[in-house]
Amino acid sequence: MIRHGTRYGMTLRVGAALSFSLMYALMKWAATLEPVSAGEMVFYRSLFGLPVVLIWVSSARGGLASISTRKPMVHVWRCALGVSGILLIFQGLRLLPLADATTIGFTSPIFATLLSILFLKEVVGRHRWAAVVLGFVGVLIMVRPGAEGAPPLSGVLFALGGAFVAASVTVTLRQLGKTESPTAIVFWFFVACLVVGGSLTLIDGHTSSWTVLAILAAGGLAGGLAQLLMTTSLQHAPVSALAPLDYLQMVGAVVLGWLLLNDAPTMATLGGAALIAGSGLYTAWREHVLKRDITPPSGSAV
């Protein structure tokens, strides 16, 4: 039986998944109307998402004191990874269909498994290795190397690079989360995105129309709300109950891609997505059975 607190946490997580889907769809939509760069996407996401985060910080226990840190250099490293990851993810989003970019982002648990072997010295059994292989088969089905109509390789590489960096962030957060509050981790990441994204926008940005600016602003608000809902959900429910819900982002990407961009997914995308989702869900189930920390599947919240 699902407890009331767990049910509330799961509801928040559903809202987070759908908000992330909306954020990516709006950013993609803006990029189809005008040449919006990845740096601009990062800037507007943080500019309009940061007020949402600040409201959350002000209501958190301790208020502004909750963003203080005992490990500033680890935050610098985490932010450097996170900003690099979201730049790669947004660049992949610019080049790929929305459903493809979103699905490839869910290869993050595969990379997290490999990184946990290298850096956390975790022992990975045959079940998790099978999940890793299944996930990579899903990627190959989606990418269809050399096939006519295959997604552009550059976009796939950017998206995979973003998923890899998101996995690296997850490994870092396992260590940082032992001493730092979630509010501090999220706040400083948004500040870093604002600084780096703003700098890139000054260098490579352009003057957008009011329509595109409104779409980017809405995307930023959705991103801030998604971050808030995702982090808050962890206070009410275990990751084992929440992780599968992140895959609703794939559903959201398909629906919003069709509604906003008139972009229906191919059978290869749907087939690859099924295998990637199956890989992540099986990994989450095995982690739950072994009573270990589960790597959140979403690469959205780098």
Rank of each mutant, 00 (worst) to 15 (best):
T102A: 11
A237N: 05
F111L: 01
V52K: 00
V251E: 02
L88S: 11
V191E: 03
V143N: 01
R292F: 03
L64Y: 11
T201L: 08
M1N: 11
T103K: 04
G82Q: 06
L64W: 13
E148N: 08
G49I: 03
A218T: 14
G280S: 07
V302I: 05
V14F: 01
T103L: 09
T207I: 14
G85A: 13
G5S: 13
S66W: 07
K178D: 07
A99F: 13
S240W: 08
C193K: 06
W210V: 12
C79D: 11
I89H: 12
A65R: 12
L115W: 09
F119T: 07
N262S: 13
G135L: 03
G299K: 02
T231N: 02
L281D: 01
G271H: 08
H206P: 10
R128C: 06
V14W: 14
S116L: 14
P151N: 08
I89D: 15
L245H: 03
D293H: 14
M73G: 03
Q235A: 14
G161S: 08
A268W: 07
L134R: 05
H236V: 04
R144E: 10
L81C: 15
V123F: 15
W210P: 02
W29T: 05
F164L: 15
M142V: 09
I215N: 04
I215V: 15
L194T: 10
P238I: 05
I67K: 04
P35R: 01
A147E: 10
L228K: 06
L200T: 08
F20N: 09
A31C: 07
Q175D: 13
G39R: 02
L95I: 12
G15S: 00
A101F: 02
L256W: 00
Y44P: 00
V156K: 10
S199P: 02
I203K: 05
S108V: 12
R61N: 12
R78W: 09
T103C: 11
P297W: 04
R45M: 07
H206M: 14
L81R: 10
G272P: 04
G5A: 10
I104F: 11
G138V: 09
P297K: 12
E122I: 09
C79F: 09
S240P: 00
A222M: 04
S21H: 05
V251C: 06
G257P: 04
E287F: 04
L81F: 08
W77R: 13
L225E: 02
N262L: 02
A301S: 15
P265C: 11
L270D: 11
A101N: 05
T283Q: 04
V133C: 03
R45T: 00
L213D: 07
G278C: 01
A25Y: 10
Y247R: 12
